[in-house]
């Protein structure tokens, strides 16, 4: 996989930053506007998959390596579990221990924002890992 033509590379270079910022905003504002951790995480995975498709797998693996993907995957799922376990300080599993804040602000809704961020990281890492498993491992075995 050497990457695609110059047209695709140029368009990708122009659009990639916007898609990245949009996906991060969908994760961060998941408790205010439609969206959330899952949709934003899939979008973030799509950013890196676009990078793989346009520039070849080496460019994407320089940014996020195989080991880094697995570390991010574990970090995402463990931090979500951590948020659930920290509720024990308030009394029970999944207790909303954070301050609620005023509605319609970014830091409102207690643990929802942090759960969204951890789920976003987790979904991004898992879906990108699934794509890389299909893209890298088979190619390595065939050639």
């Amino acid at each position: 996989m050497k990457g695609m033509t110059l047209i695709v590379k140029t368009i990708t270079r122009l659009l990639l930053g916007f898609i990245f910022v949009f996906s991060v905003s969908i994760i961060l504002f998941g408790h205010i506007t439609p969206g959330g951790g899952f949709a934003g995480g899939v979008m973030l995975a799509c950013v890196f998959i676009l990078l793989v498709l346009a520039f070849g797998k080496k460019t994407a693996l320089d940014i996020v390596s195989e080991k880094a993907i697995s570390i991010w995957d574990s970090v995402g799922s463990l931090s979500f579990l951590e948020i659930a376990l920290l509720g024990f300080f308030g009394g029970f599993f999944f207790k909303d221990f954070f301050s609620k804040g005023s509605p319609l602000k970014l830091f409102s809704g207690g643990t929802i924002l942090w759960s969204n961020i951890s789920i976003g990281i987790k979904v991004f890492a898992s879906l990108f890992a699934a794509f890389m498993a299909l893209a890298i491992f088979r190619v390595r075995r065939e050639r």
């Binding site: 998941g30 439609p34 959330g36 951790g37 409102s108 809704g109 929802i112 969204n116």
Partner: peptide, 14 residues
């Protein structure tokens, strides 16, 4: 209860 404007996310994560 949740102070989150998006009710879907509030139900999913709260």
């Amino acid at each position: 209860i949740s102070h989150a404007a998006n009710i879907v996310t509030a139900i999913l994560l709260e």
